[in-house]
Design a protein around this nucleic acid. Structure first.
Lengths: 149, 149
DNA sequence: GTCAATGCAAATCGTTTGCATGAAC
DNA sequence: GTTCATGCAAACGATTTGCATTGAC
């Protein structure tokens, strides 16, 4: 797992090569996603900014613009499903896939080598190149199984 | 693969048990999804109604309401990703999974037994019950690979 | 005749965009 | 000083909702 400084350096480097500017807002948003062990949507990132950086005012538009950019340059990843919009996580951990509870939105991470290999195999058989190794299993977690009749 | 009549009977049965009414609109929307070999979003369903059932006027709200209902009772399934909203297909074919091109939206269906089994295994290890055997691989199809630099 | 479903328009939600101001270089 | 990024509010597209009317039972 990469540390914060390394990834922030990556950010600075990408920005420079693209003729873009290094700003507090961009650094803050990236750091939040690197340090939290959860998947956040734009609104959730905003509310964390308000709590952890109360003197910083970041507009929701900036959050969206920054999240889109960070994903584009592969510093963060997103998963999206039904309601609740896109959720993001920092790319400082190993690659993994997600099981998502369609009841409560709970997300469990896992990695299975057999599936990874099969995925590549099937994709290439169909002429596809998997861009980001994303796979999503949807289901009901144990709590939601008992709730839903 | 089930035929139309069977599935329409299923629809009538579910509606009855739920104290809901059998309407032309609901039957039309379900039939469209059963008979087309494609994945449609709400707007696309509407435009097919206009072409194939020109004397029927169905409002977009009804389409959305009906699609939500049909998915709930498992007569159709949805996949959703990025833009373009949710896409639906009729549940008259065998279960299968999807590879989705993030470039052009092209969808390829596949079925792999090894992955199916592994999915179940991993899900149950985590206390999850896969509700609808849905898995999505995102990537770039061969055309989009050449387009994107 | 009763109650649920429909169509329409207004409302809502997540997200994007235009533009004047402010910050990075 | 120039150029890009920000914040705000307005715009947007997909989807949902409220309500009076219509249709199924």
């Amino acid at each position: 797992m990469k540390n914060n400084e390394t990834v922030l350096d990556d950010l600075k480097a990408v920005l420079k090569t693209k003729g873009m500017k290094y700003t507090e807002q961009r650094a803050i948003i990236l750091q939040i996603l690197l340090n939290i062990d959860d998947h956040l949507n734009a609104e959730e990132v905003l509310s964390i900014v308000k709590v952890k950086y109360p003197d910083q005012k970041i507009g929701i538009a900036t959050i969206y613009r920054t999240l889109n950019f960070l994903e584009e340059v592969n510093l963060i990843s997103s998963i999206s499903f039904g309601k609740d919009g896109k959720k993001y996580e920092g790319n400082n951990e190993e690659h993994h896939d997600h099981i998502i509870c369609t009841g409560c939105g709970k997300i469990v991470e896992f990695l299975d080598d057999t599936i990874e290999k099969k995925q590549e195999e099937i994709a290439s058989q169909n002429g596809f190149k998997i861009t980001d190794h994303t796979m999503q299993i949807f289901g009901l977690c144990s709590e939601c199984q008992s709730t839903k009749k």
